[in-house]
Amino acid sequence: MVDWDYKRNDGISNWETFQTQACSYPSDPVDRPVGPSRPAFSITEFRSLALKPAKIVTQPGRHTLKGAYTNVYAEVSDQGFSPRLAGKVISVRAHPSSFAWNYGDGTTKTFTIQGGPLRPDQAELDSETRTSHVYTATGDYHISVSTTYTGEYSVDGGPWVPIIGTAQVNSPAVPISVWRTETHLYAENCLENPNGAGCPGTAGK
């Protein structure tokens, strides 16, 4: 079985690219396509589609702690399109296949999974996940991600054909603030001395 790519002139000024499949035998000329033609959906056309950027989600929200695991994941799903090409109805499916993260602190990571929310049995603070990140310094950062899509297309309900190449879509960066924690030990009995160090009566003092 041979895949053919060739161009046809419409007699005016436009050239259209087509693909076809046919059996090849030793007696067949190798430069002549055989069988019905179908329009080819190129990577350039795939990249021109309105592919959605992933939504960035962070747990525990827009604030986290230095030295703790911060869960970061992307919300995105497969997308479908129905463009027309050379008078044919084209069905296109786009699949998010990898995610390149930039955590804003000089760290970048790429995953083939988008991650997900913490399980009910996991604490929002300092629960490690496959896509989590640990900040080693306090400060304000911006997290961004670039989603890579692969695709396939079908012509008039025919077989699905892979699109050669990928498309990248950048998501708007989201801010996150990294704080530190402090631990203090007190020996006061707040029932006996409400104004003792660490007691509610000294809050804000």
Rank of each mutant, 00 (worst) to 15 (best):
E188A: 11
A22E: 10
A40E: 10
Y69H: 10
F18D: 13
N71F: 08
H133L: 10
A74D: 04
W101I: 10
D28V: 02
T64D: 13
G204C: 04
Y69D: 06
S127K: 08
T112N: 12
E128R: 15
G198S: 10
R8S: 12
N14W: 00
R47Q: 15
V34I: 13
R32Q: 13
V34Y: 12
I56H: 04
V89D: 14
G157M: 02
G165N: 02
E188P: 01
S98K: 12
P117E: 12
K66Q: 15
D121R: 01
V89R: 09
D78S: 06
K66R: 15
G35F: 03
E75L: 11
E128N: 00
Q122K: 02
S24Y: 15
A22R: 03
G157Y: 00
D31F: 11
M1C: 08
E128Q: 15
I163P: 03
N102K: 06
E188W: 05
T58L: 14
S37Y: 03
F99K: 05
E75I: 08
P29V: 07
P60K: 03
S48D: 08
P175Q: 04
W179C: 06
G158N: 09
V34M: 12
R47N: 14
R130C: 00
S146A: 15
A123D: 13
T138P: 02
S177W: 03
S37D: 14
F41W: 08
K109W: 10
F18A: 07
V92N: 03
E188D: 12
H184V: 15
E45R: 15
E45V: 05
V174C: 10
A50S: 13
N189R: 05
T148W: 04
D105Y: 03
A173R: 11
G151P: 02
P175M: 06
D121N: 12
T17L: 14
D78Q: 14
S146F: 01
G80W: 11
P53G: 05
V169I: 15
P159C: 07
D5P: 01
G35D: 04
V30W: 11
G157W: 03
V161T: 14
V145M: 05
P162C: 11
H95F: 13
P33K: 05
E45D: 15
S98Y: 03
W15H: 05
A187Q: 14
N9Q: 10
P60Q: 04
S98P: 01
N71Q: 12
N14I: 05
A50R: 14
P83K: 08
P162V: 07
H184Q: 11
G196E: 06
L191E: 15
I113D: 09
C199Q: 07
I113H: 00
T17F: 10
G116L: 03
A173N: 09
G80H: 10
L85S: 04
I12L: 07
P200N: 07
G165F: 02
C190K: 09
S42R: 08
S132R: 04
Y25A: 11
V72F: 01
D3Y: 13
